[in-house]
Amino acid sequence: MRRGERPILQLPRILVLGFVFLLAAQVTLHHYSQLRFENRYQALGKPFSAPIYSGMAMGSEQLLGHLLAIRLQLHDSQVGQHFSYNLIDYPILLDWLDRITMVSHGTEYPMLLASRVYTTTRDQQRLRLILGFIQRRFEDDPQLHWRRLAEASVIAKHRLGDLELALEMAAKIADQPASVKMPNWARDFKFLLLAEMNELESAIAIIQALLQSNAVHDPDEKRFLEVKLLEFQQKLFESQQSADG
């Protein structure tokens, strides 16, 4: 049985006013403490040039590069608190990632930080910057970085909703020579995106070229491509019919 309740207006006025006052005080205090908290964030300083770091490494460039990467990775944790990535100045962050890449050649660490850590930002502009970095640095060593570019392509498609950018990245992966070893799904990503963009004819042409050139040896992969080819041909046929109708 539910107990009856008195309307708020019938409560003693001092009690209601006290409640409103304390609620306002709590909200104001929280707002200012949040501002104070953000003010405690120490911004990322600009890095030195790569030759300076190489000189400072005293012959241990790789180790220094990795330690700088760990230092950068911990930048969002200050005074025992975790700060939002939105507070980080991304152009400076990219400078750091570039310097670390230059100091320790052949390292995957900065690309991993870019694709797994700094892409978690909700800010679209920052996200575009970091995806641009991944796309640019992919060229340094496609064998080492294809995973990162594949991840970046997925992020561009799902988080940015920019299919053009995702396709550009997928095309870079697909266009790598056979000497760059990577699973077939990474190369197939391009035509899957094309199909999604309703570029069915291009997708069909790519699959047909792949099948006819005997570039695909794995039977499962071959079957997958054949199924996709039929599916896209069916979709294209249906779309042409609906356009004619």
Binding site: S60, L63, H66, I70, Q73, T107, E108, L112, R116, V117
Partner: peptide, 20 residues
């Protein structure tokens, strides 16, 4: 401690750090 912090290449970073 360094190995705990590293996301990848932890073993190589740890070895190089200990060596240096």
């Amino acid at each position: 401690f360094i190995d705990e912090l590293a996301i990848i290449n932890g073993a190589a970073i740890q070895t190089a750090f200990v060596a240096d």
